[in-house]
């Protein structure tokens, strides 16, 4: 049982959602945008998060779009991970989402919730980082687009009243060879020790990571090292880890040394498989 009260709003348009957010915020009600709500409910129940109002954005038609239009896949951010998996329009994203929590919860967790919630792993972000994805954002000044890799750069860089309505990526990326691999400490359903998503775009390998640090990332210097085909793979992986721009996580799921060990092995395997066209 959630031990405090809050107000519930279900707007039917993006402008209505932003307007009510600003009004509630001005009234000191600490509003939250609400997608699947799994994280808000579980944290509220434990009293580790409080808010005075939730704004459920699932009734906004633009947030439920799932279609290919004009050479781009358009994904509404209230699509559930299950819906993405069942449609399989973007297999790498479908696979990444299918390893978040368990199957039943995946039919409640939304794409936007996985990206913008407080859990640090955000595994659905990795395919978006690899595909030059653009986000359509609703906010006080109307609608605007921004690159996903600019929004999710060491933290979620959105203004308080803003929320992501849709994600757009070029159709050409959807069928590229890819690898998704997630290693956990023990059970299949758990937070990642290391999750890697990799795409092969022509001869270029792109790689994004979760579980390695306190925020998912993609790094051009690491990719440059990994794509230097004149050198053996293990040497390239070693170089990539030297230039890795993050502090490796050291927590109950695994020590930093163990994560580096896993990462070295996985990267060697991923690069080798993609270069061998074994996918």
């Amino acid at each position: 049982m959630i031990p405090f009260d809050f107000e519930y709003y279900r707007p039917s348009s993006t402008s209505e959602a932003v307007q009510i957010f600003m009004e509630l915020d001005a009234a000191g009600k600490n509003p939250r945008y609400y997608g699947g709500g799994t994280e808000l409910i579980s944290m509220a129940r434990m009293n580790s998060l409080s808010f005075g109002a939730v704004i459920d954005i699932k009734a906004i038609p633009e947030c439920n779009v799932l279609e290919i239009d004009n050479g781009h896949l358009m994904l509404g951010t209230t699509l559930t991970l299950t819906r993405l998996h069942e449609s399989n329009l973007f297999p790498l994203l479908a696979q990444a989402g299918s390893r978040v929590a368990d199957h039943t919860i995946q039919s409640k967790i939304t794409l936007g919730g996985n990206l913008c919630g407080s859990i640090i792993y955000k595994e659905a972000l990795l395919p978006l980082l690899l595909t030059d994805t653009e986000a359509l954002i609703a906010g006080p000044s109307g609608m605007k687009t921004r690159q996903v890799n600019a929004i999710f750069n060491q933290s979620v860089q959105l203004e308080p009243a803003e929320f992501i309505v849709q994600l757009h990526m070029a159709e050409k990326y959807l069928a590229l060879p890819y690898i998704h691999v997630k290693k956990t400490k023990q059970d299949k359903i758990n937070y990642p020790l290391v999750t890697i998503c990799a795409l092969k775009n022509g001869q270029e390998i792109r790689v994004a990571f979760s579980g390695v640090s306190d925020f998912p990332f993609r790094c051009s210097n690491m990719e440059a090292a990994l794509n230097e085909r004149s050198r053996p793979i293990d040497s390239r992986v070693a170089r990539a880890l030297e230039v890795m721009p993050v502090r490796v996580l050291n927590n109950l799921e695994g020590s930093a040394d163990f994560r580096r060990f896993i990462l070295t092995n996985l990267l060697t395997s991923v690069v080798g498989s993609l270069e061998a066209d074994a996918i």
Binding site: G36, G37, T38, I41, S42, T104, I105
Partner: peptide, 25 residues
């Protein structure tokens, strides 16, 4: 907390953990 599944019901035919859904929703 959404872990055990003992509260599972179907919503529009899909299994949902009813501890992680608001009644009003």
């Amino acid at each position: 907390n959404g872990d055990c599944g003992a509260c599972t019901v179907l919503v529009d035919g899909w299994p949902v953990k009813s501890c992680l859904m608001l009644a009003v929703e």
